[in-house]
Nucleic acid binder design. Sequence first.
DNA 1: GTAGTTGCAAACTTTTTGCTACCCA
DNA 2: TGGGTAGCAAAAAGTTTGCAACTAC
Lengths: 123, 123
Amino acid sequence: MTQQRRIIFDVIRNSMRHMTAEQIYLEAKQILPSIAMGTVYRNLGLMSDAGEILRIEMAGQPDHFDKTVSPHHHCLCPHCGEVSDAPIPDLTEHLQQILGSPVESYDLTLRILCDDCRAKTMQ
Amino acid sequence: MTQQRRIIFDVIRNSMRHMTAEQIYLEAKQILPSIAMGTVYRNLGLMSDAGEILRIEMAGQPDHFDKTVSPHHHCLCPHCGEVSDAPIPDLTEHLQQILGSPVESYDLTLRILCDDCRAKTMQ
DNA sequence: GTAGTTGCAAACTTTTTGCTACCCA
DNA sequence: TGGGTAGCAAAAAGTTTGCAACTAC
């Protein structure tokens, strides 16, 4: 466990948000200015593979990283790109019933305005 | 409507599959060897924007293009990457009921072995 | 004739990787 | 002290774009 890995992990742990590699890099850089983007990506990959963090892949978005590792769904704000957790239960059973065949897994992303953007729209 | 656009459109129209830009390029090249990748991408973009074809974006996959433009869900074969239509109805109502709030739209991709890969696995 | 389009190449974004030097158990 | 990193830079993959020449109508 190097200084760099610890910092990257802490940035994710301490954030309320689901950050991209770039956002994590920028925050980590504030703490350790010499840190390199490659190091961030390498550690994000290693930590995802080890199950210490969750990599969120979405169509058309850069990957985001989540400190909550148990599988769950996400929302994407169509206005600002913010990613957040979706309070939706697992739908595997439901989908398998509709299909009548087994589903290995599935990706579900809801497009919902985030609170900030909804507030701004209301104005 | 140029020769190139017609060829690209026909390749998509005549295919049973959901092809990537590269696959479309390769087929179009058989008909018009001088065609350029940029031309394929440009036309795929224009035709998607015009609603003549559907661009399918999936996490971790190159975009695929579908001649069926009405919104529907897709399956991704986790083994070979083949994309196919999913016989799943629209779930917007269902999701909104669970959430208790409106959903602008959502992405759903099922990971299901395609027929070819299932057959090979059975062997 | 001219607006739109091509082919080409370069740029772009996100992510991975090869390499040498370095750090830590 | 040696195996695992770091930093850096280059590469990879998919896609977009600027530009001069060309085509369709």
